[in-house]
Nucleic acid binder design. Structure first.
Lengths: 201, 201, 201, 201
DNA sequence: CATGAATGAGCATTCATTCAT
DNA sequence: CATGAATGAATGCTCATTCAT
């Protein structure tokens, strides 16, 4: 444990609630999860949750923010050491799929809850999700600017296409709980399709 | 009363309930829709719904079955007159996107509720959705058998990839309510990516 | 079948509904029996019941009237051929217990529903039940007038005491479904207690 | 707040709910009593009832357990100071009838709801009621063993007979709300019948 | 008379949220 | 800060009753 864990016990409790919520939401979904279940999963009292979050909705939003930020940071860190648009795209695909192995609860949570929540929590724009989309878009843009990718496709559309494809495969991986080696082969196949499809000719 | 009123009065009421449910679910989502809202939307009494469906869950499942079957039939009909794998893929993409224009409620319903349903209505396997996936898979398989598509990709994976991509774009179209012409251009871009990515070399 | 069955088919249907209600009430009790179950048991449509009875409550009351009248008539007929207060009391006890054998549904219905209904169907005084009580009272009175029974007990109280005792034993018989021979021995024991207890000394 | 408030705050609320339920059930019967009425009678919120009882059925069963135990304890306490089988039987009868005076709601509840309950709450065997029956049986058995009572009657049957008689008279007392002095005379008459009927000769 | 589809008032139960301790 | 007992609004579903055919 780091020093922070002792100096900020409140932060620790907040984190435990988020962890509990993730586990519970992954297992039963947002609407079928009771606040008391999250509390029990986190090892705190029901009321304690309301010291850290305004409502169950707020907890969901905060969980998105927190976990998507983690995903984006991780992707940025990985990509920062990789050169070449094709290789960067490959790494992005691979990392997305690896969620199914490394963080199955998070994978389930994102694939299943993302759409519902961004639609029904009206005022919430889900900025972190948009950041993730932007990241995929910029992969395409970079490729176009470097002359590696065709110019007759809009990066904004392609970002969506790629995210949708990855997310759907992640869903498949999450539910079938496929072994690790599959991820490598799946990454190869999906990457090839997009790279060959995108390649400037 | 006309003859039609006598030939299927019950079916008519069942259909009105399904229509009402689709409209309500599209607007507020399954969990935020009250049974009484569906009833009022359908112009029937609350109790009437339970003459045609066992529960709110059963209504959701029935709606999936009914609408997915309609989508699949429509796709099959369209494709039956089209030759050439590339053109068939193009038509499939186009039809998927056109849902956003022609049946925006259905588009919203499918993009937002589909994933939840297969996860939380445990025993329900969503066979119609799997049929749709199979249809996309067979497009890839046909292309491989005819030597038009590369052989180093699994149709099963590609079906998912394509569905995910289409579904995500449909989501975008549905929420931004883009005008008709966008659909044509989007179809072209997405189709090109997949066809070029899939093409045997 | 008698002539009446053909000339009054409506009466036949009324009877079938009462039979169905008795069977259903015996099995599940008044409050747990749906009108539609009675209808199905009687082989009529739900709505038909309301052509013969004003409400579910009215059906219950009518069933009491009808069956209690039958019980009373039967008791009167039997007793009309019996002389001697002690023997008359014995026959009354025996007949009461025989309900468990001959008409188990009726026995269950009377033992379980009688109290509830006479209490909660406010304006209904359950006159037939009071008739039955009067019959038991008059057995005691007759015994007192003939000098066979002690005079220091009120017939009204004794009627209740005997009815309560019989009804409780009937309940036991009904639930345990004891064989026929028990009834004879039980009749002997119960009769002896009351006759010896009542005998003038 | 007093010490008592701290030593059993939960028990207190549970007791208030049971009291409210007894009052409500006595007034309108189990099936005609709404949970919200019980809550309001008890001065708690509707939901609070479900913190102490699993369901409305469970509340009914718990009420039986609780009140029958109280009745049995009371009877045992009273009888512990009484010698002689005849006098003991007299006290048992008297105590049963006194319920009508001292606890009219409880009397109404027991006489009206007891039979329903054991029949419709399927798995529930109503053990406390059987305890009460056993107590009456043992009065008869003791009398037989001491040579005071005749041996040609089964205690098990007599227990039922006595309970049925007492219960029916209690019902009469409860509904007619007779004054106190009646109870004494009624006790005398009923006791005499059973004692003279049971006496060994 | 008979039907049974339709009605809609009614109710047990849940669960997010609060607040006294 | 933390607790968890208490709250009470909210809702899916039932079923006695009606009425057009």
């Amino acid at each position: 444990m780091s020093q922070a864990d002792k100096s900020r016990p409140a932060t620790d409790k907040r984190e435990r609630i988020l962890d509990g919520a993730l586990k519970a939401f992954a297992r039963k979904g947002f609407y079928n999860t009771k606040v008391s279940e999250i509390a029990s999963e986190a090892g705190v009292a029901d009321g304690t949750i309301y010291l850290y979050f305004k409502s169950k909705d707020d907890l969901l939003i905060s969980l998105f923010e927190d976990r998507m930020e983690w995903v984006i940071d991780r992707l940025n860190t990985e990509l920062s050491t990789v050169a070449g648009v094709e290789e960067r795209l490959r790494r992005a695909v691979e990392l997305h799929f690896q969620l199914a192995i490394e963080e199955p609860d998070l994978a389930e949570f994102i694939t299943v809850e993302l759409r519902q929540s961004s639609k029904f929590m009206k005022e919430y724009k889900n900025p972190k999700f948009l950041d993730y989309l932007k990241l995929l878009e910029s992969l395409v843009e970079d490729g176009q600017e470097q002359g590696a990718f065709r110019l007759d496709v809009e990066p904004r559309l392609l970002g969506r296409v790629i995210f949708g494809a990855l997310d759907e495969v992640l869903l498949l991986l999450t539910f079938s709980r496929s072994p690790n080696r599959d991820v490598v082969e799946m990454t190869r196949q999906v990457t090839n399709i997009f790279i060959d499809g995108l390649r400037a000719r």
